[in-house]
C-alpha cells in the first residue's frame, strides 16, 4: 500500500502539516487563554477599566498569535505544494519541516501570552501607565516570536532544499533530526522569553519610574534566553548542509537522529531556566533600582550556569554528528 514513493511523500507531507498546525494552535491558544484569564481577573478588580483592559487584551492576543500564523503558512505549503519528487528523502524533509514548525510555535505562543496577561493586570493596578505598559508588552511579545521565526526558517529550508543525489541513508535521519533540533529547542526559549517579558510588565505597573532599567534588563534577559534555540538552529544547519557518506547501517542514521533529539530536548530546560532567572532579576529591578547593576550581573551569571546543560546537549550532538 505504501510502497509507492509519491504516496509516501504525500503521507509525510500531510502528516507533517497536521502536526504543524495542531501543535501551533495549542501554543497560541494557551497563550491567548492566559491573557484572557488575566484580563478577567483585572476586570474583576477594576470593572471601570474594562474598556482599556479589553483593548490591551485584543492587541496582546493579536501579536501572540503570530507564531500560530507561521505554523498555518507552513501547513498550507505542505498540503498544497506540488511535490513531484521521486526521492524518498523528500518525505523525510517535509515531515521534518512540519515537526519543526509545530513544536517551534508552542513556546512562542505560550510565551507571548505572559506579557499580555501581566499587562492586563498591570492596567488595573496602574492605569496611568497604560501606554508604556502596552509598548513594553508589544516589544516583549515581538521578541518572544524569535524562536518561532527560527523554526519557520528551518522549515522552509527543509521544504525547498535541493535533495539532489544525496544518499537516502543516513540523510533521512539528518533531515528529521534538523527539524526536531530547532523545533523542540524553541519551546524553552519561547517560554523563557515570555516569562521575562511578563515580569517586566508586572514591574512597570509596580514602579513606572524604573521603566528604562526594567526594559533593558528584560531585553538582555530575553536575548540570553534565546541562546538554546540558537544552539538548536546551529545543529539543524549542520545536519541539513553536511553531506554524509552513504551507510547501510542503522547506527549511522540513529546517530544523526539522536543528535537532533539531543539538542532539541536539551534546549527546553535551559530556555525556561534562563527565563526564570531573568524574570527574577526584572522583578527585583523595579523594587530596588539602585541594585540594578548588581542584579543584571547576577542574572547573567545565573543564566550562564543554567545554560551549561544546553552546551552539554550541543557537545553531545556534535559528537554524534562528527565522531560517531
Amino acid at each position: 500500500m505504501f510502497t509507492d514513493v509519491a504516496t509516501i511523500i504525500k503521507l509525510a507531507s500531510f502528516g507533517g502539516a497536521g502536526i504543524c498546525i495542531g501543535l501551533g494552535a495549542i501554543g497560541a491558544a494557551v497563550g491567548e487563554g492566559y491573557t484572557a484569564g488575566m484580563a478577567n481577573l483585572s476586570i474583576s478588580h477594576k470593572p471601570e477599566r474594562s474598556g482599556d483592559i479589553m483593548k490591551n487584551m485584543l492587541v496582546g492576543q493579536a501579536v501572540a498569535e503570530s507564531a500560530g500564523i507561521f505554523a498555518l503558512v507552513i501547513a498550507i505549503v505542505l498540503i498544497f505544494m506540488d511535490a513531484s519528487s521521486t526521492n524518498l528523502l523528500t518525505a523525510a524533509a517535509l515531515f521534518g519541516a512540519g515537526i519543526c514548525m509545530g513544536f517551534g510555535a508552542i513556546g512562542s505562543g505560550i510565551g507571548s501570552g505572559y506579557p499580555g496577561g501581566e499587562a492586563c493586570l498591570g492596567l488595573s493596578r496602574q492605569p496611568s501607565v497604560s501606554n508604556r505598559l502596552m509598548t513594553n508588552m508589544l516589544i516583549g511579545s515581538a521578541v518572544c516570536q524569535t524562536p518561532a521565526i527560527f523554526s519557520m526558517v528551518v522549515s522552509l529550508m527543509l521544504i525547498f532544499k535541493n535533495i539532489g543525489d544525496l544518499p537516502l541513508a543516513p540523510t533521512w535521519a539528518a533531515l528529521l533530526g534538523a527539524g526536531i533540533s530547532t523545533g523542540v529547542a524553541a519551546i524553552g526559549s519561547g517560554m523563557g522569553g515570555g516569562m521575562t517579558a511578563g515580569a517586566s510588565c508586572e514591574s512597570i505597573a509596580r514602579n513606572p519610574e524604573t521603566l528604562g532599567r526594567v526594559t533593558t534588563t528584560m531585553l538582555v534577559g530575553q536575548a540570553v534566553s534565546q541562546t538554546p534555540s540558537i544552539f538548536g538552529l546551529l545543529v539543524s544547519f549542520i545536519l541539513m548542509f553536511k553531506t554524509f557518506p552513504e551507510s547501510s547501517t542503522l547506527s549511522a542514521a540513529m546517530a544523526l537522529l539522536g543528535a537532533g533529539i539531543c539538542m532539541g530536548f536539551g534546549g527546553i530546560g535551559p530556555g525556561i531556566g534562563n527565563g526564570m532567572t531573568a524574570q527574577g532579576a526584572v522583578k527585583w529591578v523595579s523594587r530596588n533600582i539602585e541594585a540594578a547593576g548588581e542584579l543584571m550581573r547576577t542574572m547573567l551569571v545565573g543564566q550562564a550556569v543554567s545554560q551549561s546543560t544546553a552546551i552539554y546537549a550541543m557537545v553531545i550532538s556534535l559528537v554524534l554528528v562528527f565522531v560517531v
Binding site: A29, A36, E65
Partner: peptide, 21 residues
C-alpha cells in the same frame, strides 16, 4: 472576545481560545 471574558478559569479561557484560533 466577550465570549472569552465570560470564562472564569485560565483552562476554560484556553480551551475557548483554541476553538476560536
Amino acid at each position: 472576545m466577550p465570549l472569552y471574558l465570560g470564562k472564569k478559569t485560565h483552562s476554560k479561557a484556553s480551551a475557548f481560545a483554541l476553538v476560536s484560533i
